[in-house]
């Protein structure tokens, strides 16, 4: 446990003291909640605006979770490899999986903090979530899937991309580009048909659609993401990404040859 807590404490302190990480994970989603709440609700009926704001808030919450896994995690891994820290850790009697658990727990903590702040700001700006307690619990399950998928991508990028700046650019690039083409930044119905298919398959966007469906209402989503097939696909792909990232990291992440 001490090795896990050591890795956790170190990673969380570094993340909280890294301005770029705080900007992309917390400030950027909050900025878009504020912009979206005022820009994307013009012309909508008054009674619907709180739920549109709720939908925007959820999208940005998912983006915060995504960027934490896809950008902060590879930066943490690649940064340690670029410095001599990985060599130092390998020379010590510590188990790689404990470092991994501590590190990823810290990234998840930051992402949940960011998500909570986004929700608070969204609610303060008038977002409303008509979901029941059961819906909230199901939504938490989909949040967990977003974290799994994002962490998986982050582990893959951090393991394969040795260069620190390359890891930063790749993580942010994947997060921003996939957000743009999968309906996080723009409504699903405005996407071209091929990208609508991508949005249904990509586990982050399909989980996001599920959370919006549950918490902001079915009218806020252009398709039903809670069909058995769709939910199964989301769960399987999220877990597969996390497993792939974990296996890759455990096999190659602690090798310097």
């Amino acid at each position: 446990m001490r090795q896990i807590s050591a890795a956790y404490n170190r990673t969380i302190k570094e993340l909280l003291r890294e301005r770029a990480a705080l900007f992309w994970t917390i400030a950027w989603p909050i900025i878009w909640v504020i912009i979206g709440s005022f820009s994307f609700t013009g012309g909508a009926p008054q009674e619907v605006i709180p739920y549109i704001k709720g939908s925007i808030t959820i999208s940005m919450m998912v983006f915060a979770l995504m960027i934490a896994g896809m950008s902060n995690l590879p930066v943490s891994i690649a940064g340690d490899r670029a410095d001599g820290l990985l060599a130092k850790l390998i020379s010590m009697p510590i188990k790689p999986y404990k470092d991994f658990i501590g590190r990823i727990s810290a990234v998840i903590s930051l992402s949940l903090l960011a998500a909570a702040l986004v929700i608070v700001i969204g609610v303060a700006l008038g977002a409303r979530f008509p979901g029941t307690g059961a819906h909230i619990l199901q939504a938490i399950g989909f949040i967990f899937l977003v974290i799994c998928a994002s962490a998986g991508v982050g582990l893959i990028a951090g393991t394969l991309i040795k260069n620190l700046h390359g890891a930063i650019m790749t993580g942010v690039g994947i997060a921003v580009v996939t957000s743009a083409i999968s309906g996080l930044f723009a409504p699903y119905e405005f996407l071209p048909v091929p990208l609508q298919s991508f949005a249904r398959i990509y586990p982050v966007s399909s989980a996001q659609a599920s959370i919006v469906y549950l918490l902001a209402g079915p009218d806020m989503v252009a398709y039903n993401p809670l069909t058995f097939g769709q939910v199964t696909l989301t769960i399987v792909l999220s877990i597969m990404l996390l497993l792939a990232g974990t296996v890759l990291y455990s096999r190659l992440g602690w090798k310097l040859e």
Binding site: E14, G84, K88, S91
Partner: peptide
Amino acid sequence: LIGYVPQENFSSPKL
């Protein structure tokens, strides 16, 4: 038994 100090700086500058 080994205390290894690699050539690159490994201490975290943010801590």
